[in-house]
């Protein structure tokens, strides 16, 4: 039996700051991750969202799913908009134009909005040290526009712009390590999370929100539409991503790595991959190559965690 945190309703607020009636695809892991994050954040929050799935499913005029103040402007500028809001609140409080209080500024973007088109604005905001929390909801491709590859798409995945074909295995590049890039800015808090581990996810979001200065949480969000899997497998596949070592859950606090869930023996990557149509075309050779890379990266991460360093 899995070690579930049972009786969850007692542990979390019943209030939904991300209202139902949103138009996410059936079984969307990202919508779930947003819902959980919003529970953890509470109402003293201002959210900035990049163009992408989250924005499009939650804000079709004249409707909104948001029960906290929310703004969307463009695709690549989320962290910059958050910078402006944070600075605006700071000076308005200093000048006494609004009451002094803790308001968490949160930026939300997908993997494309974070590790591709939005990376410059994000890097700038992290470097300048704004007091904000950045949440990357990583579904490993441009899902909103129809499953095009991003730099966060894993090796071997077939997408509409990295299709598997007679002479191609699909995506031929390895997933960009965005949490490591965030951590390289020497910000106080970086973490990875997955809604398959909801209590862990909420704790990390809360921790990131409470961190003075920039915090970054990278959330793997299973996408049944883009990953070509059954809609009821969202939670299971997320769990398998963690148990295979493909997406380890860890934190980097002030440069110190900590692995949150360690497994004496990782499950083989095929347990994760065989449930998804985007990997269906892969040969044993390619899968072995992926397995080797995952094992090596996991060992490297464990090493960092055991040394407690960056």
């Amino acid at each position: 039996m899995e070690n579930y945190s049972v009786y969850v309703p007692r542990l979390v607020t019943k209030r939904e700051n991300f209202a139902p009636g949103h138009r996410a695809c059936i079984g969307c892991g990202e919508a779930l991750a947003v819902r959980l994050a919003c529970k953890a954040l509470g109402q003293k929050t201002i959210i900035v969202t990049a163009t992408g799935c989250i924005e499009i499913i939650s804000s079709q005029l004249p409707y909104t799913s948001w029960r906290v103040p929310w703004i969307h402007t463009l695709f690549e500028n989320t962290a910059a908009v958050a910078s402006g809001i944070e600075s605006g609140l700071k000076i308005l409080m200093k000048k006494g134009r609004i009451a002094q209080q803790e308001i968490t500024v949160v930026a939300m973007a997908g993997d494309g909005g974070t590790s591709d088109i939005g990376i410059q604005a994000l890097s700038g905001a992290l470097e300048r040290g704004h007091n904000f929390l950045y949440l990357c909801f990583d579904n490993e491709a441009y899902m909103n526009t129809g499953i095009q590859r991003s730099s966060a798409t894993p090796f071997g995945a077939s997408t509409t712009t990295s299709p598997a074909g007679k002479v191609s295995i699909g995506q031929v590049t390895w997933k960009k390590n965005m949490p490591a890039i965030a951590a390289a800015h020497n910000i106080p808090y970086v973490a990875t999370a997955c809604p398959s581990y909801p209590i862990d996810l909420m704790a990390k979001v809360e921790k990131g929100a409470a961190t003075p200065g920039p915090a970054y949480v990278h959330i793997l969000s299973v996408c049944p539409t883009g990953w070509r899997c059954a809609t009821d497998l969202t939670i299971r596949i997320g769990r398998l991503a963690v148990e295979t070592g493909i997406f380890p859950l860890y934190e980097v606090e002030n440069g110190k790595y900590r692995l949150n869930f360690d497994f004496p023996k990782l499950r083989p990557v095929t347990d994760y991959m065989k449930l998804q149509g985007r990997f269906r075309h892969l040969s044993e050779d390619v899968i072995n190559k992926i397995q080797q890379r995952v094992s090596a990266e996991y060992a490297e991460l464990k090493e960092k965690a055991s040394e407690g360093k960056g």
Partner: peptide, 13 residues
């Protein structure tokens, strides 16, 4: 058993 996992894992809330 009233554990609430269905509640916490529902993408629609």
């Amino acid at each position: 058993i009233k554990c609430g996992l269905c509640y916490i894992f529902c993408p629609e809330g």
